[in-house]
């Protein structure tokens, strides 16, 4: 009888302590295979600008792949959009944008550049064709997206607001039209929720080995959700380890973690957008290193065949916060 009670208690205990749906990154059969696309040098004529200012080191804050051959870089060091050859990494066209840009989206031949309180639209020749201010209640907006000819502000709260209509939605809109949100649940878990274009809603809990510091949406396709998962190495002062993970998605229902790759600890400048999930499921990753700006393509590959990041970015442990201007402030 005692044994029965014990098993019953154990069963109840497990039921309430272990979430029904959890997934961690153990036992994966695939990973991201990394291929370097280009490298661009700092502060050269056809390279990218770099500037150290009080509070931050600035360079390229965001990037967009315009097509197979062209990548656009948004410079908050020089307040410019620079269009470069994706293979050579050399800048062919550049034009000025309103000072202190935060992020941009390229759509239908136009650049939608996010500033503190407005979005400025530029054509490929750099002509400012439109300005769209937004309410001062939306503060700290650092990301923007375009979907189906509409402009979306991706809010720090994890929600999205359509600029043209003011419509607000839970989650960040992604290129597939799905809205994805993430919330930390306890020390080693996070919940991801998705609302698909046909209104289907799903949520699932995932676990991390170390304490979860933050989970940030990279994007989603019809069959994948990709996240930037950060876990604490030190909680104070902050030191984190970053992983890019992808989750299987099937008819709007999330499955298990499919791939996981550790992101190199190399950050030469402050950037708001470092990853872009492409329609074909590959991820473009921008790494800023002391020797230049690197673009990598990450594709899901069998675990045994996956190629990792080159030592040029993994061997360099560099964070811009450790190399800020020393201000020697007076009290």
């Amino acid at each position: 009888m005692k044994k029965t009670y014990f098993l019953l208690a154990l069963s109840l205990c497990l039921q309430y302590t272990i979430p029904a749906q959890t997934a961690s990154s153990g036992n994966l059969k695939t990973s991201f295979s990394v291929q370097e696309l280009s490298k661009t040098f700092w502060n050269t004529g056809d390279g990218v600008p770099y500037k150290s200012v009080p509070g931050a080191n600035l360079g390229i804050t965001s990037f967009e792949q315009m097509d197979k051959n062209r990548t656009a870089l948004l410079s908050d060091a020089s307040n410019e959009i620079r269009i470069m050859n994706s293979a050579t990494g050399k800048t062919s066209i550049k034009f000025s944008v309103m000072p202190t840009p935060r992020d941009f989206a390229y759509d239908n031949g136009n650049f939608y550049v996010l500033n503190e309180n407005q979005v400025n639209v530029y054509d490929e020749n750099g002509k400012n064709v439109k300005s769209m201010p937004f309410p001062n209640t939306l503060v700290g907006v650092g990301r923007i997206a375009r979907y189906n000819n509409t402009t979306w502000l991706l809010l720090p709260s994890g929600n999205s607001v359509e600029l043209e209509t003011g419509t607000a939605k839970k989650g960040w809109i992604t290129a597939s039209g799905n809205f994805v949100a993430a919330v930390l649940k306890n020390t080693n878990a996070y919940a991801v929720s998705i609302t698909t274009t046909d209104g289907k809603y799903d949520t699932k809990l995932f676990t991390t080995d170390k304490k979860t510091a933050g989970v940030y949406i990279v994007g989603s396709t019809t069959d994948r959700v990709v996240l930037d998962v950060q876990t604490y190495i030190s909680e104070s002062p902050i030191q984190v380890e970053r992983h890019l993970v992808s989750i299987r998605l099937s008819s709007g229902v999330m499955g298990e973690l499919v791939s996981d790759v550790k992101v190199p600890d190399c950050y030469y400048v402050l950037s708001d957008k470092e990853f872009n999930l492409n329609k074909d499921g590959s991820v473009t990753h921008m790494i800023t290193a002391p020797d230049g700006l690197h673009l990598f393509s990450l594709t899901e590959t069998e675990l045994t065949k996956a190629k990792s990041y080159p030592s040029s970015v993994t061997a360099v442990k560099y964070h811009f916060n450790d190399h800020l201007l020393q201000m020697n402030e007076q009290k």
Binding site: G140, A213, Y232, N321, D322
Partner: peptide, 29 residues
């Protein structure tokens, strides 16, 4: 709740006092 921090700062990123949001990795050290 996602681990995003909405912060206020006077910095040379905007050359004024403004709001910016940061991930944990961006607040390293």
């Amino acid at each position: 709740a996602s681990g995003t921090f909405l912060l206020m700062e006077s910095s040379a990123v905007d050359w004024k006092v403004s709001y910016r949001s940061y991930t944990a990795a961006q607040l390293t050290s």
